[in-house]
Design a protein around this nucleic acid. Structure first.
Length: 453
RNA sequence: GGAGGGAUGGCCGAGUGGACGAAGGCGACAGUCUUGAAAACUGUAGUGGGCUUUGGCUCACCGAGGGUUCGAAUCCCUCUCCCUCCGCCA
């Protein structure tokens, strides 16, 4: 979510920024709703102030009345006719004042009720609109209309694998080695599902283990095991809802939704908290399966295991101060590159232009790995700085060390790395003429074999 | 799944309709004392919104949302979460 103050103060600038994303947002409607909201707020608060004031007065009178009633009872019991008469007169007049004030205050209350109702509606409408406004790109992001304009940096890591035979794509290699079973996956769950079997399943498990250990041991991340289903509010906090509702699997009875990425759980770890600046940055890493409907990409990438409804991913996540978030973004990019290097992948960095930033990111890099069998660059990581976009939705703040006002943290997320695709690259790039696969050095301690055959 | 008990400030905990943004304690911070520290004493402190001549003024917030009332931490309803016992279970 954007800062409403920013929209209020620089509406035209905000519109320009959003136009760069190839997106639109009802900024004028938002400003109108915001104005109306503040108008009502001013009115209703003044009325509340009046009500508080007269309630206090009434309270004071009610106290006096109680005392006078007691006095009257005593006077009557003591046969003090004159005093009783005097008290009765006073009592009646005070009672009259109190009743009158009550009636007047009740009317104020009615008006407050009406205004409150309108305020509720205006605020709900404003909030709903705000939820659909995308994040604003960082000034360093190149302006471009779509992904064809993204900047692809020269390949890094291992040289392009060379073969003296025609390398097979994983959808042939897998079944030949009996490590991927497409038919039975489909039997269980339908299209876009598969089975990993034997060394295939073990290879994926080794990769997960390797990634987690690497980030925890060498990069200083704290490992998290989160719930794989979370409440819908967490999806809203991570900016997945309302916009991406089509992509989410959910429970039919309860308010549970299956993670599309660990980012959703990790973002909300510190939801509604105020962190201490001294505790920042917080760095988390988590392995989770990810579940996606893929409605939007129906018909795309149907071959092989590149895009399924379920996949595994190790995700890095950071909470930082605003001053350090862009440095943190570069560090996370390096963290992901380190893994690519350690695995001997041929990979490249893609810097996204404004038109391909997506909804939540202010700046984003992708990492792509070369897969020699299918002859494709596969996206194996996406690393974003969302600045305060998620923090505002999930209400995550920190208290600056100098004791100033609380501020929103910046949050960053990045795959480190995404699984079936890294496995595709490993399998296809390391295949030999006989169909066997050489296990990368780094994974051998986890698998206990040098070659999968 | 059944029965019962809870949710109050950083923490503990009082508060059953009116002077309560909330006693008291602990912790935190600042000051006094001290060579320094501790102890003691004194003082300061929540979050968010609106307005503002930037001095302030004001509203809301006691798990969440409704309701009753002139007035709600306090009474009523719904929901969420936690705890205890029973049942079931990896």
């Amino acid at each position: 979510m954007l800062d409403i103050n920013l929209i209020r103060e620089k509406p035209e600038w905000v519109k320009e920024q959003i136009a760069k994303l190839n997106d639109t947002a009802p900024i004028d409607e938002i400003i109108a709703a915001d104005n109306r909201r503040r108008e009502i707020l001013g009115e209703v608060e003044e009325l509340r102030r009046q009500r508080n004031e007269s309630s206090k007065q009434i309270g004071y009178w009610m106290g006096s009345l109680k005392k006078m009633e007691a006095d009257l009872k005593r006077a009557e019991a003591g046969q003090d006719v004159e005093k009783a008469e005097h008290l009765r007169t006073q009592l009646n007049s005070l009672q009259f004042n109190a009743d009158e004030a009550k009636e007047e205050t009740r009317k104020i209350g009615e008006r407050i009720g009406e205004l409150d109702e309108e305020l509720r509606q205006v605020e709900a409408a404003l909030y709903e609109k705000m939820l659909w406004v995308p994040n604003i790109p960082h000034e360093s992001v190149p302006v471009g209309p779509d992904d064809s304009h993204n900047i692809a940096y020269p390949p890094l890591g291992a040289p392009e694998p060379q073969f003296d035979f025609t390398p097979k794509p994983h959808w042939d290699l897998g079944p030949d080695l009996d490590i991927i079973d497409f038919e039975r996956g489909v039997k269980l769950s339908g299209s876009r599902f598969y089975l990993l079997k034997g060394w295939g399943a073990r290879l994926q498990r080794a990769l997960i283990q390797f990634f987690l250990n690497y980030h925890a041991n060498k990069h200083g991340y704290t490992e998290i095991y989160p719930p794989f289903m979370v409440r819908s509010a967490m999806f809203e906090g991570a900016a997945q809802l309302p916009k991406f509702a089509d992509n989410i699997y959910r429970d039919a009875e309860e308010d549970y939704m299956w993670l599309g990425t660990a980012e959703i759980a990790l973002t909300n770890i510190h939801r509604d908290e105020i962190l201490e600046e001294a505790d920042l940055p917080k760095k988390y890493v988590a392995y989770t399966p990810c579940f996606r409907r893929e409605k939007m990409s129906a018909g795309r990438d149907v071959r092989g295991i590149k895009r399924g409804h379920q996949f595994d991913k190790v995700e890095m996540y950071r909470f930082t101060t605003p001053e350090t978030s862009y440095q943190a973004l570069e560090e996370m990019l390096q963290d992901a590159k380190d893994i690519c290097e350690a695995l001997g992948l041929r990979y490249r960095v893609i810097e996204m232009v404004t038109g391909d930033l997506g909804f939540a990111a202010s700046k984003k890099y992708d990492l792509e790995a070369w897969a020699a069998g299918c002859g494709e660059w596969l996206e194996i990581s996406s690393i974003s700085n969302t600045e305060a976009f998620q923090a505002r939705r999930a209400n995550i703040k920190y208290r600056p060390e100098d004791g100033g006002r609380t501020r929103y943290v910046h949050t960053l997320n990045g795959s480190g790395l995404a699984l079936p695709r890294v496995m595709i690259a490993v399998i296809e790039n390391n295949q030999q003429a006989d169909g066997s696969i050489v296990v990368p050095e780094a994974l051998r301690p986890y698998l206990g074999v040098d070659v999968i055959r």
